[in-house]
């Protein structure tokens, strides 16, 4: 087997390694494929579906699809971007997101994706579901109103921290993040230094006493859209 794999994304030649995913091979080549549940260093999850691309014409999540020689990948086509925008819209109406006073504002991947896609307001009606907030832990809180069920905390705690503090309960629209205790995060082994405490892409799992510390104008996505850090490495 050769040690490199050649394929194309929107006509551009990309070189990947055997076993590598489309998303990571693209990233290494400076091509940004929008994503939310993906986090480097964690097992691929394939839940948000934002990274869906067409592989030889068929939809596949770029974070779980491995590269193959001659693969033809379509990423930022008008059609795929419209679908992705719809997914972001769905996440906004499923939860209760009030960006203007959220600690994560400006550093939030969901918000940043919305800006990148030019979403000013979602086109679907809000669901206004009641969700629980858990302030019981001394250093970290959970606000389920903002959770997008990406599972990054679940994987980080299980696979990196070796603790399994988080997991999902319920199914369908009733799916929620639960903790490894009767009810409260404060009764778990979570430490503020855990990977799980900083894996959240949105403001659902937040460290206490650091909110709003970075002034507006200096936050992660204040000047450049999400993904531009990858695109700027393109050859």
């Amino acid at each position: 087997m050769s040690s490199t794999i050649e394929f194309t994304i929107n006509g551009k030649d990309i070189t990947g390694r055997p076993g590598q995913t489309v998303l990571e091979a693209a990233q290494d080549a400076g091509v940004y494929i929008p994503r939310l549940c993906y986090m480097r260093g964690l097992a691929a999850f394939g839940a948000c579906r934002v990274c869906t691309v067409l592989v030889n014409g068929r939809p596949q999540a770029a974070c779980t699809q491995t590269v193959a020689p001659g693969m033809v990948v379509e990423n930022n086509t008008e059609k795929m971007t419209a679908f992705r925008r719809n997914l972001i819209d769905m996440l906004f109406v499923e939860g209760n997101h009030f960006c203007m006073f959220c600690e994560k504002s400006g550093n939030c991947e969901l918000q940043a994706l919305a800006y990148r896609f030019g979403i000013a307001a979602p086109k679907y009606p809000y669901m206004f579901q009641p969700r629980e907030v858990d302030m019981s832990h001394g250093d970290v809180f959970i606000d389920r109103n903002r959770c997008v069920l990406c599972g990054r905390c679940v994987r980080a705690s299980r696979d990196v921290d070796g603790k399994h503090v988080f997991d999902f309960v319920g199914r369908g629209l009733h799916k929620r993040i639960a903790v490894n205790a009767e009810a409260l995060l404060g009764d778990t082994e979570l430490a503020v230094t855990d990977k799980a405490a900083e894996a959240c892409p949105v403001g659902a799992i937040v460290k206490k006493r650091v909110g709003y510390a970075v002034p507006v104008g200096q936050r992660l996505y204040d000047h450049k859209p999400i993904g531009s850090e990858i695109e700027s490495t393109a050859l």
């Binding site: 839940a47 719809n86 997914l87 769905m90 679907y124 629209l173």
Partner: peptide, 20 residues
């Protein structure tokens, strides 16, 4: 809506929106 496992966004949320 009842039987979606809820793992992925389009099925979990989209079916509810469609039904509504």
């Amino acid at each position: 809506v009842e039987e979606s496992c809820g793992y992925c966004t389009p099925c979990r949320v989209g079916n509810v929106l469609l039904k509504d």
